[in-house]
Design a protein around this nucleic acid. Structure first.
Lengths: 214, 214, 214, 214
DNA sequence: AATGAATGAGGCTTCATTCAT
DNA sequence: GATGAATGAAGCCTCATTCAT
């Protein structure tokens, strides 16, 4: 879950008049933050409005309903994942093995910005909200595609095993990262997750590398 | 997530007078089912009462508040995990390697009874409800203890590597299984998860076995 | 529109605890009165609750929604019409010709208790609310049946013409009375309607009587 | 209720720039149509604007408030009735008896263009809106004057009875027509109203004609 | 003459909880 | 033990209207 974050300080510039086009995006970021703090269940329309420095009704002017707002937050996450997957993402390493390991590290870092919390909220809601489910699948597809491109590149360059089932490996990596993220949400001490991350990254590397780790 | 399920037909015996001591358990099962169906956010006190065949006020007689009911559902899951971890659980295999693989298979099976759904709901809520967080840690501890006992036994019998970090391996297995569970909740086609389960189980086995798979 | 009215003073006894079964009826009467005063458009849920001496939520306990309450008011009018049509209604005369004339007089009297106002509100709403439309047709059927029974009796007793199309005459009388009621709602001076009522009643009598008026 | 209708296609020419003076009239027609469709209660300012192809704020530019718009719709109906009553109305017959009968037929025809629906909405509102009540009295006066002129002409030409109370007859005819209109709004099958219209027209003719029908 | 973003009061409804019986 | 009527705070949303441009 590697993401490029907008300047969060924007959130507190609410009362400064903003170009109209940005108003929606700004609200979505506020909602994202509140979901992270209080969960989807604890998300209050009035709270979002207040935090965005606007009126209860103005919020409805930009989003037809609370659900629409939540969906917009989902779409924000899709964008964030897609940005990560962009080929010119400066943060990601070029070496395939390093890239995979970086995925784990990156995920670990985002456990603190509560992307995992919001994501888990959306997963829970997706069970009975088809549109949220669709958004999650978009995130899934973007992430999966990104991993596949990395793996395929590594396979063709000879760094990774030639007989690799790229799609399967990608899904397996994603599952492992998701599992670690959930573990971190439960664990009393987040630090205890680090060795698990390490172990899973090692296992993945051994699995896909053309030559075993020394 | 291996669990022993109470007879689900109990749920439909609501209107048949039940021994007082079982009434609470019965209500908890109804609540469990409704959470699986509608989520924690969609859980309505009145719905639970109706589904349990009792009165709105009577439910409050058994559970002091909605939160208390939810906590009781969490405790139910703790019990289920604990029962699994009981040394005399007849379902689990004795061979350590087989036991580990069985964990994955068992988890895959429970993806259909929506234990993962309820569990995810609780994880989401645990972020801002300390008592639910404590319950999840109980589940975690029970599950972890169970896996450690298996692994330790295998280590001492020579089936598993001697230099195994038992606690770490247990946590890694749990993370992997949790990740697969979440993946299954997102995937459009649940069947697509099976190869991932297989891959992860293989990786774990290779990691811990004293002798590599043939 | 001949009706038997419940004691309207009941409305003001709101805060005196009432037998449960009467609570619904009491609320409906309050709503009826408020619709007469402020119209369907001006009917406020909170106002009904306050006027009934109960809580906003309690009102919802008795009626699932505002629409349900409105439908109940419609049903109240059906009951009132049905009571009128009851064979043992002490108010109605037995002589068919007198009975028809009494219909006009009775309608004129009810123009003051605002039954016509509520009725017109329901007619307006019925254009886009099928359930209200059904209620109005119930009222229509009850009233029509009642008139037919009077006319048929008169026809067989020889007081009315033998070749009478009973159903048509009944509908015509109803139309005339409805028209007069609407006229009264528009007229600045209600008294100016009286001669119109008289004229229509005369016309009807001349039409149906076996022997012309002297 | 005989009316001359503006070209309804105007309604759909919304986005074509119109001479300023017509813009108001065009909006009023849109509002009229929406009232017929959804009732006064269901009339939304935003809907009118959208249907008129203009902006929410622009509508307020033409009409100071929603009430002003509704009053304008009322005035539109006054105009329509006045046009009918104009001495040079080409549609109306010259023979008084035929003219009276034509009133009934004409009313029956307008039951389909929902003039009765809008009229009933206005009657309902007039109970608590003095300005709408005044408008309805304008309509009433225009219609009444028109009928009186017909009747007076017939009386003086000898076609109608000499001892006719012209004003009373006019009001009676209007009541009858209004009653039929309301009946049509309630009836499941609009066709069932036709014989009632016929009967009332016959009664009126017998009443006013100098010589009885053959 | 026209726009459309923004407002805010107020409506209906939900729902956990209380309480007299 | 159990009932169900009653509560009331709070939520989402509607919609006429204002205002800067």
């Amino acid at each position: 879950m590697s993401t490029v974050w907008l300047n969060e300080n924007l959130w507190y510039a609410a009362r400064v008049p903003t170009p109209r086009t940005d108003r929606r995006a700004q609200i979505v970021h506020v909602a994202y933050r509140l979901i992270a703090e209080r969960g989807l269940e604890g998300l209050r329309f009035a709270d979002v409005a207040r935090a965005a420095g606007i009126n209860n009704g103005t919020l409805l002017y930009y989003f037809d309903s609370k659900d629409a707002l939540i969906r917009a937050v989902g779409s924000l996450m899709v964008d964030q994942f897609s940005q990560t997957a962009a080929p010119n993402n400066p943060g990601a390493p070029v070496d395939p093995l390093a890239a995979i390991r970086w995925e784990f590290v990156d995920a670990g870092e985002h456990l603190q910005d509560q992307a995992a919390v919001v994501y888990t909220e959306l997963v829970a809601r997706a069970q009975r909200d088809a549109s949220v489910a669709a958004i999650l699948r978009d995130i899934d597809a973007a992430w999966h595609g990104w991993l596949c491109s990395i793996l395929e590149r590594g396979r063709q360059s000879g760094v990774l095993r030639a007989d690799l089932d790229v799609a399967l490996v990608a899904h397996t990596i994603m599952s492992a990262i998701r599992g670690v993220g959930m573990q971190a949400m439960i664990a009393e001490d987040p630090a205890q997750v680090a060795p698990v991350v390490q172990a899973l990254a090692d296992l993945m590397e051994d699995w896909v590398a053309a030559t075993p780790r020394s």
